[in-house]
Amino acid sequence: MPTADEIYTKVRDTLVDALGVDDDEVTPEATLVGDLGAESIDFLDIVFRLEKNFSIKIPRGELFPESLAADQTLVKDGVVTPQGIAELRTRMSHADIDKFAKNPKVENIQELFTVQMIVNFVQKKLAGGAA
């Protein structure tokens, strides 16, 4: 089992390769979309590279949940409902949902996707079972 630092370094290298960013741009707090310029197709590339670099399997939607905003019980009037927050906590235990819950606008969901979120996910994955 690699150390937290080793995981972080590998995640950083993965993002440098996938997004073409400099390694000093990759910080734990950096958001994939806002800070590192990731587009939707990059998420697929990132998943492929994480699987290869860490020898893990990441089922579709596990790291980056899909179609959350399309469910009206989870999102109403552009805001994630309390039920939606609970759903996020279940599906994204690797993300900082507490921070998001303070301003749960749907457009802020992408701010959950940080470098640290990926590190958390990989750590849990390597520790065994689903993240």
Partner: peptide, 10 residues
């Protein structure tokens, strides 16, 4: 092919 799965491949 480096990787192939139902949603894509490298």
């Amino acid at each position: 092919i480096l990787d192939a799965r139902e949603d894509g491949g490298i």
